[in-house]
Design a protein around this nucleic acid. Structure first.
Lengths: 217, 217
DNA sequence: AGTGGAATCGACACGGTGTCGAGGTAGTAG
DNA sequence: CTACTACCTCGACACCGTGTCGATTCCACT
């Protein structure tokens, strides 16, 4: 198991040792570079291949399709986001306002740093079931974490009862997703990038604590 | 000007009088029918043409592209939604809670009735600039209406100050869009269709009135 | 009967995807 | 220093969907 199964979900094809890895990486790098310049749909397999210094058929030795490249990129970003979120939510009681803000802020940073990838994923989510599934899984994880945090805040008496915690978590998570997308992709009415964290935070706090100031534990 | 310029944005090509209109309508009907069965990307111009009883080249006599058909469909839906929303927001002071609910409820009904079209638009919004533009314009109109309503509620002392009204309007509108999409298209974590109006309403009310009960004027 | 524009479609060119099979190339074992 | 093997590479091909062109038919109104 020295150099096998390098890619997360087995998205790539390599299971071997040496120079081929460079090419795999080169394809990924080319993809992220081109994605910063033009939409995913306007990038062909040929562009990716040439960018990595190989021919189009050779591309298929490394990835089964153009979409698979994007999927690998998405894997990376979501992993990074999960890591960035860390355990903020279990330390909520320390200082609720600061912790919620930290959570939102960290996601903001991560997605902002990879906006090209996020944008591309939104672009193909409609077309590609694989991307849709992966993205849905990420959201589901986040929703569950938020739901648990809301339940905990209610249990310790910091937040009053109200909507079912899961529904609230879904609504707030969905809001963030859409608002970030509008901001990063400049698609539709958008909040200024500078303000977006605080705007989101305000809606989160008012709807979780219902006007009450969240008390520290 | 008896039968000229029938389509809203000049999406279709017809500018003539008789039988061709049937075909135009047939194409639209075929599109909406097929959209209920499979995603937009899996419907070819040929499918649309055959469904309307014409050949593929003839399709191009009526519409410049597949996307133009969808755009026409979207035009219809947004017109319907605007009509359904009507003047609820200017009558907010009568009974704020009931009026906000009415607004959300009516959009819910309209989009729910045309979920296939909404879904398809989300699918191509990433690819098609025209759809993106039209959808953004619709959102912008809604955002402005909500912003004005929030300002009015604050001015009459019903709602306390807080976030800039426009930012709040954007956040709430975005939330609705994404939550509805998840519910209607079963894409990602979703609120049950039965509950969604009340869940959204709750977040709207708490973040606009900040815990206070909205008083009637 | 004849003219003009509406409506129709066969045939074509194009561009992108994915596959196949025929190579090269580099280590390793005899 | 061969020859085997698994990795790696690409030219050529088949396929599919889009959009266009030019020829043709149909019909209403001279």
């Amino acid at each position: 198991m020295t150099a096998t199964a390098r890619t997360p979900g087995g998205r790539g094809r390599r299971a071997a040792r040496s120079t081929g890895d460079d090419r795999q990486l080169a394809i990924l790098a080319t993809a992220e570079r081109l994605l910063a310049q033009r939409p995913f749909g306007e990038i062909s397999v040929d562009d990716l291949a040439r960018g990595a210094g190989i021919s189009r058929p050779t591309f298929y030795f490394y990835f089964p399709s153009k979409d698979a490249v994007l999927l690998t990129l998405l894997d990376r970003v979501t992993e990074e986001a999960d890591a960035a979120a860390g355990d903020v939510l279990v330390r909520l009681a320390e200082d609720p306002r600061a912790r919620w803000r930290e959570l939102i802020h960290r996601f903001h940073e991560t997605f902002g740093a990879h906006r090209a990838v996020v944008r591309a994923c939104a672009e193909v989510r409609g077309t590609n079931a694989e991307v849709r599934r992966l993205w849905a899984a990420v959201l589901e994880r986040w929703v569950q974490a938020v739901e648990a945090a809301v339940v905990a805040e209610r249990r310790r008496g910091a937040a009053p009862d109200g909507l079912p915690a899961r529904d609230l978590a879904i609504a707030l998570t969905s809001m963030n997703e859409r608002v970030w997308y509008a901001t990063f992709a400049a698609d539709g009415p958008a909040v200024a990038e500078r303000d977006v964290v605080d705007v989101l935070l305000d809606v989160w706090l008012t709807s979780v604590y219902r006007g009450a100031v969240p008390p520290a534990g």
